[in-house]
Amino acid sequence: MNVFACVACAQVDFPRRLLCPSCGRDEFVEVDAAQGSVEDVTTLHHRAGKAGGDIAYIATVLTHAGPRVIVRLERLLAPGAVVSLRLESDGAIVGFSD
């Protein structure tokens, strides 16, 4: 998974912006953000469009590259846990611990 750093001022954001919110430039480089730390977790007991009692865990993760991302956890993890991140083909970000 990648985040985006402004070439001019090094501001790192996710998702990619058209213009840097810090300096207004429009040139970015991709920065690896394959890991991060769980900050907060929410348990979803009912998901729209899903039948049955599927439980999903959604977390805010502070990536080691800087930006925070919202991810789906493969299992319940406590705040502070280090997770690896991957981008799924549908655009969802999944966090998992090794």
Rank of each mutant, 00 (worst) to 15 (best):
R17H: 05
S84E: 11
G49H: 03
H45W: 02
C20D: 14
M1P: 10
D26W: 01
F4W: 12
L73N: 03
A78V: 12
L77G: 01
S84V: 02
P15H: 07
V94S: 14
N2K: 12
V31N: 04
A5M: 11
R75D: 12
S22L: 06
A65Y: 06
P67Q: 10
V71Y: 02
V71N: 02
V7W: 04
V7Q: 12
L19E: 09
D54V: 07
H46N: 08
N2D: 10
T42F: 03
E39F: 00
E27L: 13
P79K: 04
G49C: 14
R68F: 03
N2M: 02
R16H: 06
A8R: 11
P21T: 12
R72P: 00
D13S: 06
C6R: 07
V82Q: 09
P21H: 15
V61Y: 00
A51R: 11
A48Q: 10
R72S: 13
G52V: 13
L77Y: 00
D13A: 09
A59F: 01
D26N: 07
L77P: 00
I58R: 08
L62V: 01
I93Y: 01
I93L: 15
R16V: 03
S84W: 03
L85Q: 11
P15S: 04
V94Y: 03
A8S: 14
E30P: 08
Q35W: 13
L18P: 00
N2G: 07
A8M: 08
A92E: 01
A81M: 10
V38S: 09
I93E: 11
I55A: 06
L44K: 01
Y57M: 13
A59H: 08
A5L: 00
V3T: 14
G24E: 04
S37L: 09
H46G: 12
V29E: 15
G49V: 11
H45M: 03
E88A: 15
P21Y: 08
M1D: 01
F4L: 02
